[in-house]
Amino acid sequence: MRELLKVQNVKKTFRVSARQQKIQRTKERTKVAVDRLSFTAYEGEVFGLLGPNGAGKTTTLRMMAALISPDEGDILVDGSSVVKSPDEVRAKIGFLTSELKLEEFFTPNYLFDFFSELHGVDKATAARRKQELFGKFNISEYAEMKVANLSTGMKQKVSLVISIVHDPDIIIFDEPTNGLDVLTAKTVTDFLLDLRGRGKTIVVSTHIFSLVEKICDRVGIILDGRMAACDTLENITAEKPLEEKFFDIFAEKAGGTYEK
């Protein structure tokens, strides 16, 4: 299988401010958010990054999207390095996170055209894609409403659609169903499966076990910025259900870490 996304031994450290040092009662000036993490996502698969809050999932995804640079190591996105050619990487991926917001003053229609232009999609292709995606997510009837007036679920759908205006082969979603009602969450989940069916490579970060079980082909479990386990979903859940397996790994690693 073709390696579309290759994370190679990446490390990311953040500076801890004097204020944070006081709050966290630590003298450490830096915090390692991601520690020599490696994994590969292959063409046409859904790779799930599973881990608790603060484990380093979002930092990893941000590095994959070339929003931040790794201190060490590299990430190759369809052959382009996030360190050497971040612009190329950003052209090849679709990235969606709850931290990325849309200008509420504009309409979904305008925003779709605007982001299509930024991604260099020609007008005819953009119009065709807009019709397809707006139809799939029932956005058409809200297309001329300002984003500010849309419901949370509809905003999330618009964000998702806009993140893939350029029909990227690699799609990175951070907590894709977080905060969504069950109906919208199902629409998003079905869409991810549909994308996989069309040969797209998808990396999702989540802490929802059911989502991983439903859509992921392979899973990486991140704890304290390190890869605690990485295998196919089938192998990971061979002996125990995913949730139990996760807590076994967590107890094993946490025991080792926190007793220090």
């Binding site: 052209a91 917001k101 930024l118 991604h119």
Partner: peptide
């Protein structure tokens, strides 16, 4: 304002220079 609302990050994730 765009930084505060998180909308500038949406622009930064595009391939725009």
């Amino acid at each position: 304002g765009e930084k505060e609302r998180g909308t500038i990050a949406t622009l930064l994730v595009t391939p725009m220079k």
